[in-house]
Design a binder for these strands. Structure first.
Lengths: 334, 334
DNA sequence: GGAAGTTGTGCAAACGTTTGCACACATTTT
DNA sequence: AAAATGTGTGCAAACGTTTGCACAACTTCC
């Protein structure tokens, strides 16, 4: 229905190829015809069809992005970075969330390939092995965010981040340090937690490790479990800032003050965390930058610059008001 | 490069049309050939090309979504709703932010049309008149979120929301009520503020209306301006939850307690707002649902069900701990 | 004044599907 | 036994671009 190159050609009395070249500023088209045709195109309300163009040139100028969970504010930062970088390179972004479901992840990526995206970015993949399989049907480059094993990846070193965070708590005098973990995506952090404790000769007490869903709710339900322990912790390290907020809320209901009675740490450093009350001690995952770097890497792959190395970015500790030296009363009550 | 229908046809010894029909489960293809061809397709790693298909059938099964600001958590809720609904209808989503720049908005939408999306959703458009222009080049349906004038829109009635919120403050005894506004997108709320005051015979004091950027920063800078007034407010109504959080932080630095010394209200009801400290009195914009409804509306338009009416959804007040009756000390000091 | 180069345009194939129409053969109906 | 209907498949055009190749006309050079 829409006006096509042929329509313009007919009216201008030239061939479609000439119109195509005129619109693309081909050097061998005379200035006269160029001007005329461009004028005509404007008048006729011509809007080129990327679809047809993609078919002809065999590239779609589109990148597929599959994220773990659109609900989690952390991924928002990532998407921001990705969106900006993609737009800067004049690509478009197809966005999908797979909500931690491996089957859905596969569906999404398969659909991306049907649509012939030029490349794919996925966060926290559950099916890395499929991308690695040399004869899957996915012939386009894939960059995985936060993978430790995939060759084309950019990852935050969360284990180290968590290790340093726990060390901070230990330095403050804490010995009974709990960890609220998220079983699916929290293994790295849990590992950092363990390593830090062991490095300081503190044995890991399984009772102090409780699972959660990674949201505020998770924190709300996890905290009471810990506080009802015969021997409760003096500090709680959380899977992310959201759980930390949940934990703090639950503690307040228990009439526990943060940080006077108990210290709490987050992970992510959401924009709001610095302005929470108390402001959150946490680990900054530079989500924006990770997103950008992932796009840069992907575009290099798309352009067949194959000398790409996995990137690991170090997070940064943000010491704020939700942690304090262990209180004497609590510490000695143990 | 990838295997095409023709490749399969050659190997199967049939025509490409037969292959196409076999893969699409056309009734007039014998079960035998169907099975054979589908088997073959799997073995050869065939992935159909949506691009070619789109060209042939003249629809892309894609919806373009242009949002005001990807940075604002409010829009995240919207995008979640949109993403879910789009996926449920087996469309794909092209996502772009135009960061409050009308020129960029136009670019984005133009690009959507080049890519022949089947429809477009835009939030808080700055160029509604262009979509209304009967001979623009945009031949596909557009749904605008939060427009009061566009015929195909779903909007939250923010004026009413704000009006009720201010009434709540007045009922609590407040008379000097400030409003932190966002000049670009906050006109409706400002209007609600004005109407509420006037309805209660309180004159609008321009000194109590201060602009901000709509983020935490905006709140941080706006609050001191208000508190340094000769005659400061006893309540501050904010453009959104983020500014409210900024305002509360600034107040704390001024040794003002919320809500004992001063009440603060937000707008949006972010997930976190119920768990802020103090929990925020605010107006819930049901972002998820608005997103969903917009998609439903758009899809009806795409399917030429033209009986669509603009939808207005009423927000809901959430009374929480950041507001309290006006304190006697402050009130009488006036 | 012929060879060589330059400039501007057109032809036609290609990209990978879908689909109306035609047709051959088999089956059922009258 | 002829006619009508049903079943399975192929032909070829269409969707809207891009682009290698060819070619004519015009310049420039020796």
């Amino acid at each position: 229905m829409a006006v096509s190159i042929k329509d313009i050609a007919k009216i201008a009395g030239v061939s479609p190829s000439t119109v195509s070249r005129a619109l693309n500023n081909h050097p061998r088209i005379s200035e006269g015809t160029k001007a005329h045709i461009q004028q005509l195109a404007k008048e006729m309300g011509y809007v080129p069809s990327s679809i047809a163009r993609s078919l002809a040139v065999q590239r779609s100028a589109t990148i597929g992005v599959a994220v773990t969970d659109l609900t989690d504010p952390y991924y928002i930062g990532l998407i921001q970075g990705i969106e900006k970088a993609i737009a800067a390179h004049t690509y478009q972004m197809l966005l999908n969330s797979f909500y931690r479901d491996p089957d859905r992840e596969l569906e999404v990526v398969y659909d991306f390939h049907q649509r012939r995206v030029d490349g794919v970015i996925v966060t926290g993949s559950y099916i890395e092995n499929i991308y690695l399989d040399p004869d899957n049907n996915f012939f386009k480059p894939v960059v995985i965010i936060n993978s430790l094993t995939y060759p084309h990846s950019v990852a935050v070193d969360r284990a180290t981040g968590m290790r340093k965070l726990i060390k901070h708590l230990i330095d403050l005098g804490h010995r009974r340090i709990a960890h609220v973990t998220q079983p699916r995506d929290g293994m790295e952090r849990l590992e950092g937690y363990r390593v830090a404790l062991e490095a300081h000769g503190i044995s890991v007490d399984p009772a102090l490790i409780v699972p959660c869903d990674g949201g505020i709710m998770g924190g709300l339900t996890a905290a009471p479990v810990l506080m009802n322990l015969a021997h409760p912790p003096t500090a709680i390290s959380c899977f992310n800032d959201l759980t930390a907020i949940g934990v703090i809320n639950a503690l307040h209901r228990h009439k526990c003050r943060v940080p006077q009675d108990i210290s709490v740490t987050g992970f992510d450093d959401l924009e709001m965390s610095a302005y929470y009350n108390p402001s959150l001690t946490t680990v900054r995952q530079p989500a924006n930058r990770v997103g950008e770097r992932a796009v840069e890497m992907l575009i290099r792959l798309i352009n067949h610059k194959n000398n790409v190395e996995p990137e690991i970015v170090q997070p940064r500790l943000m010491f704020r008001d939700s942690t304090a030296p262990v209180s004497l009363s609590t510490a000695t009550s143990s």
